[in-house]
């Protein structure tokens, strides 16, 4: 502290810089092109390109006509921009006997998606709430069984569920598929909600009980308003999962109610006629649009919810 040199320089410097000692002052200067930054941003840019390039190829190909595609320059932008492939993919492409494009599959998917998401989240959130706050006898066993459910391969259960749905007369219908999606979403969603509700201070729950709120009162008036982030996470998980599902769609429904993914497969993999790459690309982008939009609009909330709910055991 009492370094004589500093004391001496202080006396000299006092006039010049109004009492400041020698040496660094204020924030440390940071170089924009430091080695750390170059490596960091370089890596990020390379990886971003790696992921964006296929998307770029898809978009430009879908905007080209077939003659231009046959030239083989897949990276070159379209000389003559045409939206015909998009129109065809949406409303004219043929799958089986139907020639009304992906629009049929889109609306089927919507009709599957909305009830599945609502049903699975409604049930799972109440499950999680009950498991976290209303410890009943056998709660741990119940929870363990539910978690094990998340690790059983789907393939094992496909045929038994076919029989089950057939017996209750729902095989091949949208209702059947909605039920299947809701059940398969249950383990992971319940885990998600249970962990989130466990992180809510227990005293809050106790205070609500002293205040005379019951099971549903606490759920709707205390817990629900506090858990927007985790609901957003659950919605994103379910929307993307169910929208992208192919296996259950192809197994449990009939051709006229096929979801969009199955229909996309049927368009792209059709073996008759010419392969229309531009239509295929447009159809694929159309199918992927819903999850893409969901991610774009919920990015921040998604991260917040994941951080809040999923980490704590």
């Amino acid at each position: 502290m009492a370094n004589p040199q500093i004391l001496a320089s202080t006396v000299v410097g006092a006039d010049a810089v109004a009492g400041r000692l020698d040496g660094p002052t204020g924030p440390r200067p940071r170089r924009a092109l430091s080695r750390r930054n170059v490596i960091l941003y370089g890596t990020l840019i390379v990886i971003a390109l790696y992921y964006l390039l296929p998307l770029y190829v898809m978009v430009v190909t879908s905007l080209k006509g077939m003659p231009e595609i046959r030239l083989g320059n897949i990276f070159s932008p379209p000389v003559e921009v045409t939206f015909q492939p998009w129109v065809k993919a949406w409303s004219e492409a043929c799958t089986g006997l139907n020639c009304d494009g992906l629009s049929r599959g889109f609306w089927n998917s919507v009709r599957i998606l909305i009830p599945s998401v609502v049903l699975s989240i409604a049930i799972a959130s109440v499950n999680g709430y009950a498991l976290a706050n209303w410890r009943f006898k056998g709660a741990d066993v119940f929870f363990t069984i539910l978690i094990i459910g998340a690790f059983i391969p789907y393939q094992v259960m496909i045929y038994p569920i076919v029989i089950l749905l057939r017996e209750i007369g729902l095989y091949g219908s949208l209702t059947g598929l909605v039920i299947v999606h809701s059940i398969f979403g249950m383990p992971i969603l319940t885990l998600l909600f249970r962990n989130y509700f466990t992180s809510v201070p227990e005293e809050l729950f106790k205070a609500a009980r002293v205040d005379g709120a019951g099971f549903w009162g606490i759920y709707f008036r205390i817990m629900l308003p506090m858990s927007l982030p985790i609901f957003v996470v659950a919605i994103i998980l379910q929307v993307t999962g169910i929208w992208n599902d192919f296996l259950f769609g192809v197994v449990y429904t009939r051709p006229d109610v096929y979801p969009m993914t199955v229909q996309l497969n049927n368009i792209v993999n059709s073996v008759q006629g010419v392969k229309e790459y531009n239509v295929n690309m447009a159809a694929t982008i159309l199918t992927g649009l819903v999850p893409l939009v969901v991610y774009f609009f919920s990015g921040k909330l998604f991260v917040r919810g994941i951080a809040a709910g999923a980490v704590k055991g």
Binding site: P201, E203, L204, K206, A207, A208, V210, R221, I222, P225, M226
Partner: peptide, 11 residues
């Protein structure tokens, strides 16, 4: 009852 963490309903 009054709790240590106040336990006020945040919303």
């Amino acid at each position: 009852m009054v709790f240590q963490s106040y336990a006020l309903y945040p919303q």
